[in-house]
Structures are given as structure tokens and as C-alpha cells.
Nucleic acid binder design. Structure first.
Ligand code: MN
Ligand code: MN
Ligand code: MN
Ligand code: MN
Lengths: 237, 237
DNA sequence: CCAGTAAATTAGGTTAGGCTAATAATCTGG
DNA sequence: CCAGATTATTAGCCTAACCTAATTTACTGG
């Protein structure tokens, strides 16, 4: 009697198809970068390459792999967009990143300049268990210290209805919700008390040069050029 | 302060400015494994392979690379021993590991069972800056919670003059300095208050079965078999 | 609508760090 | 002191992630 054996399984033996494992640090950073440059749209090879400081062909190559992992939808020449799973992974990573930054700032005495780099590595090394215990330790913050919302453990992210101060109109009263995370911007804004939670009255929006003048709660007046005004996000009061 | 960014000269390549770069996580774990299995002697391929759960040929290969990096002295068929730099790297890693474990236990509510695995990954992701701020946050502990000494920032490690309780003699008064880190051992000892710092009087050392009977500070008596008695390290009082 | 440019992909490498199978060296107990 | 067992090395592969150079595709403005 002849017995026939055949196998339906794809790929190499039953060794370990790439389906299960945690994404590597690289994969996580790519997924986060796609989220950051494209949100729910499609991210271009170039944008992702620039954000990650990686050569474009490497990105093309990774887009293919991310699709095989089910993290993105990818079509040649038209970029990659996150699948539901990809989005979940991105938000899980961002949650870790922002909680870690909060911890470093509030408990270890880090300055803003140092925080991001450390978090960029640590975010890949902590488990979900660590993350939730850290959230508990921090009192389950909803935003990180410069106002970026921290995604919830279930992956949900509060919709953001804030807009750049540069788009405000004279006479408006607004509250700072978050500030850009460029180090020198952050330093300037911090020094002048322009931090999340602060209430501002928009005095003048000068079209000529884009300078916006605001008055803070203490009656202090600030004139901000377009780059700065674009880094301060506010919500109407 | 010790110089910790070191250069690996890569022959003719000049492709990269071959400077800098921390050892990779793998390299760090190898160096630590060599320290753990051999101290200042030579570690065998087999011992390191077993400790790291890696195939022996991979270890042989890494021994060669570690030597090229100046971290070990290696001779075919006679194992690898750490150079001064290798020892420094190992102790720096162990410092990070033990400080992280201390933090996880004392501040994030981890149990002993969970701590080690998390620290095993985090130890590779934290910077020296993080490590020193964490040490500060923790109050510069000299030992981790089960009594293992934490190497100082300068790489020095207090010499260990403790010995297993199994080697004590009847009538001796001893203080527990550290306990083995096997999870179930740890659980038993913790439940019975046999933790570092505790003072014990050795009542009986029974050669017949290796059982040691001790009395603690509260007059409580404990009979410990050889495996347990070997996991409790003490110092004479 | 089409040529020139910008973006993307393909082709062909590299390095780190793993693996297995085959072979060689060392060690040990009779 | 030597044969078998143990340990180590060599040979040959593999995958993940990067790279540069060459080529192809897509976009855009005249
Ligand atoms: Mn950040
Ligand atoms: Mn990162
Ligand atoms: Mn440990
Ligand atoms: Mn480790």
C-alpha cells in the first residue's frame, strides 16, 4: 500500500512562521512612522524614509514585509496604509512612548531635550505588563507632559480637536492643549510659561508677517512668529 | 567616570566612521554570561551556550568576535576569559540589571517571578544617564532586594564574604546576606521571613540528611534541607 | 501631451547573529 | 595509554535590516 503524504503548509517546515512573534523594534518604528506621517491614509516611501533616516529602498523592502505581516496594505508606487492591526500596534507603541516620557520627566528629573531619545529605545523593551504598571504608578495620565494624548490601553485615542495657534483669529480665547516637541521650541515656550493648560487671549493676527500676539493669564504679552505659532496647539474656550 | 563609548577599529573598511556604538544586546549578554559562569577564569563554550540557550557553534563564533572587540581573551579549545574592559562591561550591565529589578519590585509592584525577565530586556535599553538617575531615585541601594550586591557606577563590586547556610556550624550566629533567585525558593523563603538582613542562630547541622535547623530573631525555628540551605547565603555576626 | 524631474523599485551587496551537520580535539576511565 | 565520550570547531546556510547604483514609474508644467 502506498501512502501519500503531502503538506498544505506554506513556507519552510513548521518551524516558526512569522505570524506570532512580537514585532521587532524596527517593525514597530516603521508602523509608528507610518501612523505619524499618514494617520489613516497612505504613507509614501519617501516620507517614511525621511522620518526614520533610512534609505528609500529599505523602506520599499520593509513595506512588503509589513504587508506580509498583516500590518499594512501596500500597493507598489502608492504607499502603505495601516491595517486595523497595524494601527493597534502603532498606538500601543505610542502609549508606551508617552508613558515612559512622562515617567522620565516627572520622576527621574529628565529635561525635555533628553527624554525623547531615551523613550525611543525603551518603548521597544518594555512589556505590556510593565506599561500598565507604569500607567498605574503615574496615576493613569491622559496626556504626556507636553500635552500629547496618551492612547488608552485598549488602543483608543481621544480625537484631537485642537488646532495650531497660527490659525486662531483675533479676539479668540483659547487654551494651550499641546506644544510641538522640537527641543529648542520647547525650551523657549517653557521659559515663557506657554505650556499645556495655559489660557490665552489672541490680541492680533498680523497677516503681513504671520506674527500672532497673545496675552496670557498673567497679562503677559507674547508675540510669536509663524514657526512658533504653528508649534502651539490650542482649543477654543 | 568611566569612558563608555568606545571605538572598534574596523580595518580598511572606512565605510562608517568606525567609532562609537554600544555593544549590542547580544554582546552584552555574552559578556555577562561569561562573568557569571567563570568570574575571572575562562568560560567554556558549552557553559556559555547552555546559559544563553544558544548552539555551541554560535558561541565559538561570538568568542572570536568578542576577542576582536577586545572584550575577551580567547584561545581555541580553552575558552574565553574577560579582559578588563570585558569585566567593566559585564559589571555595568549587572548594575543596570539589579537597579532595574529593584525598581520593578519596590515601585511597580512586580513579584519576584516576573522581575527577572523584564530586567533581562530593559538592561540593554537604558542609557548610563537613565541608570544613574534611577540609582538616585532608589536612594543608591547597595544590594538588590534579594541581597545581591549592586556594582558601583565606577565598576567596583564589593567582595563577597558570604557563604551558604549549608556550610555553617552549630552554635554560629549569622545574618542572611542574600538568597538564591530561583522563584519557588524565593517564595518559600519570603513566606517564612528568611530574607536578607535577618539574624539567625544555627541550632543543629545534621550530617545525616543535611538538614539545618536555625532560629530566627523572633524565636521561630526553621528546618531547612540541603537545597534550601544552599540557597541562603549568610555572613558571620 | 509630453519631456523632464521626482519618487519608487529592482538588483545586488553587507553585517550581525543565529542554525545544523560534519569533523576534529581533548579528556577520562579502564 | 588509548578508545570512546565529550566538547569544540569548521563548513555551509539562513534571516532581518540595512546600504548604493541603476532602472522604472509617476507626476507636473508648459
Ligand atoms: Mn517623544
Ligand atoms: Mn523607537
Ligand atoms: Mn535577575
Ligand atoms: Mn539581557
Amino acid at each position: 500500500m502506498i501512502e501519500r503524504f503531502w503538506s498544505i503548509s506554506i513556507g519552510a517546515g513548521m518551524d516558526d512562521p512569522a505570524v506570532i512573534r512580537h514585532p521587532s523594534a524596527s517593525v514597530e518604528d516603521y508602523v509608528k512612522a507610518i501612523w505619524e506621517v499618514a494617520g489613516s491614509g497612505a504613507a509614501s516611501t519617501k516620507d517614511v524614509a525621511e522620518r526614520l533616516s533610512i534609505a528609500p529602498p529599505s523602506v520599499t523592502n520593509m513595506f512588503v514585509r509589513l504587508q506580509e505581516m498583516g500590518l499594512v496594505e501596500y500597493e507598489r508606487y502608492r504607499g502603505a496604509s495601516l491595517t486595523r492591526r497595524g494601527r493597534e500596534e502603532a498606538l500601543r507603541l505610542i502609549r508606551r512612548h508617552r508613558l515612559i516620557e512622562t515617567f522620565l520627566l516627572e520622576h527621574l528629573g529628565y529635561s525635555w531635550r533628553e527624554v525623547h531619545e531615551e523613550a525611543e529605545r525603551l518603548e521597544h523593551a518594555v512589556s505590556d505588563g510593565f506599561t500598565e504598571r507604569l500607567a498605574e504608578f503615574l496615576g493613569h495620565p491622559g496626556q504626556d507632559p507636553h500635552g500629547d494624548p496618551i492612547p488608552a490601553a485598549d488602543g483608543s485615542l481621544a480625537p484631537d480637536d485642537s488646532f495650531p495657534l497660527g490659525e486662531a483669529t483675533a479676539g479668540q480665547r483659547v487654551r494651550i492643549s499641546k506644544v510641538g516637541d522640537d527641543p529648542s521650541t520647547l525650551e523657549y515656550l517653557g521659559d515663557h510659561g506657554l505650556v499645556p493648560g495655559r489660557l490665552l487671549s489672541v490680541r492680533e493676527v498680523r497677516d503681513l508677517d504671520g506674527v500672532i500676539t497673545v496675552e496670557d493669564e498673567d497679562g503677559e504679552s507674547h508675540a510669536l512668529g509663524a514657526p512658533l505659532a504653528g508649534a502651539v496647539f490650542v482649543r477654543g474656550e
